[in-house]
């Protein structure tokens, strides 16, 4: 019978990503309820040392597939390796990060393992002895409680939602041969084009400063960039702003963009179309700055400012700079 709570640890440029610690901490919490072990799978090149770090967050055992063919990440190589470890060890639950890479990997694993996967979960729990995953659907217009009829029960966890908790465990390394032949891989990363360094992705940001049609044009975003710089935030945009060509598509928040849940979302000049509200209303705190006091965004905002954003935002930047100095 399937047993154990597993995670797939994600890493980039030689370091574990934050979501890996969120996964480990969550897996530990679940395993303590079911009396199981937590195991992690790490697939990469030169990654054995990461095991000890995972141990700090409650991982008992770390299955390591170390091979030059695993860098950089490709779906076919990594999915084959993780599937091999899962098939050989039969875990009951498998958690993956709902990052760009994690979502890609998890979906391929569903095919390889004939499993069920709940994508982008905001809560996971054991209820009546069974694993249940809670996830937003329709970009957060409703939620679904997902139950499973196959092992492993898979869930990808939305980054930044699950707390990181330190629990010292062994993090013992178990090396395994994934049996992946580099020559047989059908996909290959031929180029990595890095964006300007320091840019925070909206999907991973703790704070998002977002602008809509009210920014009046691409040059309007300068004041949002300044506020974001002070707060360590990412700059997001509404669909209207992206469709107008003011901001890149990767910044779009909403049903046809990214669905986000930061600690703080500052909506500037965004009226609050339903597809936008769906994408950000699970943010912990929402500030809305808009001239139109009838704008639907105010119904979602914890703090609403009805005024000219071109005056309020620079003043807010100055105030935050003072407070945070």
């Amino acid at each position: 019978m399937a047993k154990g709570v597993w995670i797939v640890a994600e890493h980039r440029d030689g370091a574990l990503r934050k979501v890996s610690f969120e996964l480990a901490s969550t897996a530990r919490k679940l395993a303590d309820q079911t009396g199981d072990e937590v195991a992690a799978v790490v697939v990469g090149s030169g990654v054995e040392a990461m095991a000890a770090e995972l141990g700090k967050y409650g991982v008992d055992k770390v299955f390591v597939a170390d091979n030059a063919a695993f860098e950089p990440y490709t779906t076919d190589a990594h999915a084959a390796a993780v599937a091999k470890a899962v098939k050989d060890n039969d875990p009951a639950i498998l958690l993956v990060g709902a990052s760009v890479q994690g979502k890609d990997l998890a979906a391929a694993l569903v095919g390889k393992l004939a499993a069920g996967l709940a994508t982008d979960c905001t809560d996971v729990k054991i209820a009546d002895g069974k694993f249940v995953a809670v996830r937003p659907m329709y970009a957060g217009k409703c939620f679904g409680e997902v139950v499973f009829n196959a092992a492993p029960a898979m869930a990808s966890l939305r980054p930044n939602v699950f707390p990181i908790v330190e629990t010292a465990k062994a993090g013992a390394v178990v090396k395994f041969d994934a049996g992946v032949d580099a020559g047989a891989l059908k996909t290959k990363v031929v180029e990595v084009q890095k964006e300007a360094s320091g840019k925070i992705d909206v999907a991973e940001a703790n704070i998002i400063v977002s602008g809509g049609r009210g920014m009046k044009g691409p040059e309007g975003y300068g004041i949002l960039e300044e506020l974001a710089g002070v707060l360590g935030a990412a700059v997001g945009a509404s669909r209207a702003a992206v469709d107008a060509g003011w901001r890149p598509q990767s910044d779009q928040v909403g049903q046809t963009g990214k669905v986000v849940s930061p600690n703080l979302y500052i909506a500037c000049g965004i009226s609050g179309a339903i597809q936008h509200l769906a994408g950000m209303s699970s943010s912990k705190y929402i500030v809305a700055i808009n001239k139109d006091n009838e704008a639907p965004i105010f119904a979602k905002a914890d703090y609403g400012v009805v005024d000219d954003l071109f005056k309020v935002v620079p003043a807010l930047t100055a105030e935050c700079k003072k407070l945070m100095a």
Binding site: G116, M137, V146, V147, G304, V305, A315
Partner: peptide
């Protein structure tokens, strides 16, 4: 292999406040 056992409406957000302060953009 997986199914939504139950659909749930999103949690309602508590009503927020409109900041009035001294009615200048700087004050708000």
């Amino acid at each position: 292999k997986a199914k939504v056992g139950k659909f749930i409406p999103p949690p309602a957000r508590p009503p927020g406040k409109i900041i009035c302060a001294d009615d200048t953009p700087e004050g708000k």
